[in-house]
Each structure stands twice: as C-alpha cells, then as structure tokens.
Design a protein around this nucleic acid. Structure first.
Lengths: 334, 334
DNA sequence: CTGAAAGCGCTTACAG
DNA sequence: CTGAAAGCGCTTACAG
C-alpha cells in the first residue's frame, strides 16, 4: 500500500493540495476557514499521514540532516560527543547521520561526499590528518561545516576546541608542584594540532619550571596504542618510585593503567597518574583517577549553534570557540 | 553559488538532461556515443558535480538511509553495535541515522516518526519496553524493520537476537561446577524479554542442579544501576568467601566491579565474577574478567541482511536469527 | 544514438 | 477564503 500523501488528503477532504499544505504547515499568511482546517486535520489523522521530508527538502533545500564525522564512533569519547550532539540537534529539529573516518583521509573524504549527496544541511567533523584540502573545498562551496575536538593548521574553519595547550600547561604545573623525580608524558606521534598543543603545553610548563626534573615523552602511533605497555615497562622498570604519568587521552590512559594494574604498580604510592578525558573504565581502577574533564555538553551546544548560524544565514563564519578543560582532582596523584 | 545540477551539465555539454542522467548512471539499455559520454563526464568533473540524492529519492522512493534506534549511543555496547552496523551499511550503500531512546517509549516513537519522515529505507531498533504498538504499526505499513539485541513478546518482528537463555544456562552450569557456597545473579527489574531470558536461564540452571547452593538475585531498575553497590554490600558483607557473582550486563558489571575494587574484595580469591558483554573497562580491573561475548559483527551483518531483504523484496519476513554467545574464560573465576 | 515530457510529493507566489 | 500551476533535481518510458 502506498503511503498517503498530501494529494490523498486533498482528495478525501475535497480541497486542493495547496490548501492542505497551508493548513498542515500552519502558515499564517493564508486565512483558511476553521471548518476546512478541522476537516484536513481529521483526514490527516485518520489516514495516518506522515509528511515526506524528501519532497520538502527538494523544495526548500533543507534536509534537516546533520552529518557527524568522528574518528571512531565506538570510542567512548566520540560516542559521548555524539550523544550530546544528538540531543542538541533534536531540539533544533535536526537528525544526525554518523560516520567513522578511522583516521583515514580517503575514508573521511568518502564520508564527506556521501553526506553531501544526502544533502545534509551541515557537517560537524573531527578532521583527520591530511584532510585540509577536503575541508577547504567544503568552505569554498560555502557548505556549513564546524570542526569539533580537533582543528587543522592553516585553514580557517569555524569550530569549537578545548584550550588544550593552556590546560596541559596548568595541569603539568600542578604536577610540578608535587616534586616528582620523573614526569613522563604519554602522547601520540601525530600531526594533529590539538594533540601537539597538549604536548607543547606539557613541554613549556616543564621548561619554564625552575626545578630539575627528569621529563620524558613516550609518543605512540594512533593505531598502535598497546605499544604503550612495552614503553612504560622500559621507562618504569620493576620498582618505580616518585614518578608521575601524564596520559594525553583516555585511550592511552586505559592502555597505560592496564599495564600498571597488571604489574601491580601502586597508584599513587609508586606512580602518580593524570589523564586527559573521562571514561567509565576509570571506575575499575583501584585509585580514583585525576583527570582533565572536557565540557562535552557545552562543546555539543556551541558547535551546533555555530553550524545552525551558518545554515540560517548562508554566511560563512570563521569563528573559533575555545572551551576550558577542568582538572578533576581525585586520588591518583600523591 | 548554487550547487551544480544535471541541468548545468546538460547545458554546458550541449545535450539533454536525459542523456546526462543516462550516462551518469551508466544505464546499459541506452546506447550513447563514446564522444558524448566522455564530454559529459568531463563537464561533471570540472564543475564538480555531486548528485542530489534527495531528488533521486523522491523519484525512486529510496533514500539509502537506515535508521538505528538504541537505548543510548554513548553506551559501550550500543556504540560498538553502531560501529559494526555503520561498516556493513556503507558496503551496501546505506548511511546510518542514529537516535537514542533512553528506554522511553515516547522518545522511541518520536524517533520512529522522525526517521519515517526522513524516509529511511528501513530501521534497526533495540525496542524499549512498551513499544509493541509502535513496532506493530510499522509492520502493518510494511515498513522494513529489524530488531537487534532485544525483542518484544507477542509481536512478530524480524530480528537478530542472542541465545540469551541458553548461554545464561550453560554459563551458570559452568559456575555450578565450581562448588561455590553462594551464587548471586545481578540483573534488571524489567519486562524486557531478552533480559528475563538471561535471568530465567540462570534460574533454570540453578533449579536443575543437584547441589544445594544459596542462590540469590539482585534486580535493579534500568535507571538505577549504582544501587547495585548498596545491594552488593548487603549481600557480601565485609568478608565474603567462596561466592560467585553473575552480572547480566556490562553496565551492571562495571558498577559491581567498582564496588569490589573500592572495598578491596579479592577476585577470584574471595569472590568470583562472570559478566555479560565486553567493555574496555575490564582492562583496568585487577583480574581478567570471564565474560560472555556477543558476536557483534555477525549481529550487525545479519540484521542488515534481514533489513536489506525486506527493502529489496517489499516482502515482510518474520524471520528471527539467533546467534550464540561465547564464554571467554579468563581468571576472574576461581 | 538522443531528446521531450511526465512525474516523484511537496511549497509558494499569484490570481481570483 | 481557496485553487491552478510552476518548480525543486532527478529518472524513465516513449518517440524518433
């Protein structure tokens, strides 16, 4: 059975499709008698009419679809972002399409193209390394786009970002106050600016400090996180003392903490831990992890706003919004 | 600047829109000269043509959009399902729209309606308690739909499901062999059949056993998982011995394991643990958790297949596919 | 080998 | 207060 259309309503109610359209969309300009209105609503109800958004979209060039591209939707951090975005989007009448890039620029481009074919009204993306061109093209076409979590050097895409460098700097200073013998930064070997910012924040803070402290960085490939375990083994030895570990992401933290648990290294007695991002996994660690909390809800809110503005005005903005991370102090630092 | 359409290509290439459409869609029936073909492809390339899926959809009544409704996309289990579905969907040319129901039938219905307006070609849903009517209506309209992870009593929707009852039974038997003094099932106070199946599997296995063993169930509201901690406290006391805990979901397991960690209860020396589902969080627990693994990839594959069949044939099926869980034995059971 | 034309389900300026 | 008609960007049976 064909799904009922506006035409069916018109036929049954004995009016024109135009009238039906006016009534159903509650257009103010047109004055329709209460009688016909009532009739139309009744018919719509009984035949179970659901408007066809596709037809509407073709007409007004708005799909009410928003595309979200993250590295991997099964990653805790991104699925939380997705959830927050979903809620905000829904409030504005948008629905979210989701895609995972796997840090692969080709896949990223593929997703951009698919979303573009689907006529999404805008995209929220966590761009991968090497996707500058792709974003640039989107900007040129005035396609509404907003970056989230990440950003890229040299191109001016609107976006919302954490104050990565500052929060890394201040939290490292917090560690420095504690007089550790050694501070180890566990980060990524990457070109992604937001991750480099964290690293540079750490390094600056160490360099600016008067203290003589051994600092070291372990940098892992994005795809090779388990490697952190071997590296930590080498760095910590069998009986580490008075050492602090700075994990620059939840993924790294989970991998690293798993190593500590396995090797029965006591936190914070032997090793102190500070981590970026939250994850449910922390709950199962013997110590409560001190971590940098990102304001995910605010991020979602601001990025959707930024996108909605572009969609509404057809005006491309290059506005960047920086939000502050917050150090949640628990007991993983001595 | 307006985005280029097939009309633009036609104008520039000096042919009709029909010809352009034929060429771009590589229709075999029509024989077009190589020259015009080449010309058309060239023009499409240079003006950066991207087909408008909305227009296509209106014509052929296929949006190439699939709706996924889960309880909460930020839940590990569902974000993993989503990821697997995304990959399978992409291979068949579909894009995923995602929504979270929060176990709320009204929200569930709202999402169904929105997805329906967006003309998704089909929906994959983890139905919430009380959504029977909604699914029934969908079935009546012959709207392609497949349930995943969950199912509902009394309605015949096609779907893929775990052998919850059987795997719960066999894994409980596995526990029974170990001669515990006490076995505690931690589950949900719910009407969701797939969860009741797990519970009944557990109960059957206990009842069928010859052994005299104390068994107990702690049932939590879906929204009140932290409560598990108080309940476990009451049940376990300060110095539990030879007790086994059967967690019927990853959420419950994480909450329960957090309690064990906090109270320094040794696994498996004092308390043994078996959990349903996987989560990264297990990595941070001192013992490696023995758990029931669900074949997520296969689930995704089968559910998409089931959906695609319905979409292709317009034939509604009521086929149910049951997949087997697997007990991954680690060292959390003595 | 190629094109004119109808139509998918809506919206909206215009006419009455 | 209401309707006829054009148009959004495509596809496709039909004609030539």
């Amino acid at each position: 059975m064909k799904r009922p259309s506006i035409k069916d309503i018109a036929r049954i109610a004995g009016v024109s499709v135009a009238t039906v359209s006016y009534v159903l969309n509650k257009k103010e300009g047109q004055r329709i008698s209460e009688d016909t209105k009532k009739k139309i609503f009744e018919v719509a109800e009984t035949i179970n009419y659901i408007p066809n958004r596709i037809a509407k979209s073709l007409q007004n060039n708005k799909s009410k679809l928003l595309g979200l591209i993250v590295a991997d939707i099964s990653n805790d951090f991104y699925s939380n972002i997705a959830r927050n975005l979903e809620d905000k989007a829904l409030k504005l009448g948008y629905t979210l399409i989701i895609g995972s890039s796997d840090e692969n620029p080709e896949k990223f481009e593929k997703l951009v193209e698919i979303f573009s074919q689907q006529q999404v009204d805008g995209m929220i993306v966590a761009p991968v390394a090497g996707s500058e061109e792709i974003l640039l093209k989107l900007m040129e076409k005035k396609y509404p786009v907003v970056t989230i979590d990440r950003y890229l050097k040299g191109i001016n895409v609107p976006g919302v970002i954490l104050n990565n460098r500052e929060i890394a700097e201040s939290t490292t200073s917090y560690l420095l106050e504690k007089d550790f013998d050694q501070i180890v930064y566990i980060g990524y070997d990457t070109k992604l600016p937001h991750l480099l910012d964290r690293q540079h924040g750490f390094e600056t803070s160490i360099a600016d400090s008067e203290k003589s402290i051994i600092s070291k960085s372990i940098l892992l490939g994005l795809e090779n996180i388990v490697e952190v375990q071997t590296q930590l083994g080498k760095t910590l030895g069998t009986n580490p003392q008075n050492t602090a570990l700075y994990f620059s992401s939840n993924k790294l933290a989970v991998a690293g903490l798993a190593y500590l648990v396995k090797n029965n290294i006591k936190v914070p007695q032997q090793v102190s831990v500070l981590a970026f991002d939250e994850t449910e996994a922390y709950k199962l660690f013997p110590a409560e992890i001190t971590f940098v909390k990102q304001p995910l809800e605010e991020m979602a809110e601001e990025s959707i706003k930024l996108l909605d503005m572009q969609i509404a005005n057809y005006s491309s903005t290059t506005k960047k919004i920086t939000l502050s991370g917050e150090l949640i102090i628990n007991n993983s630092i001595k």
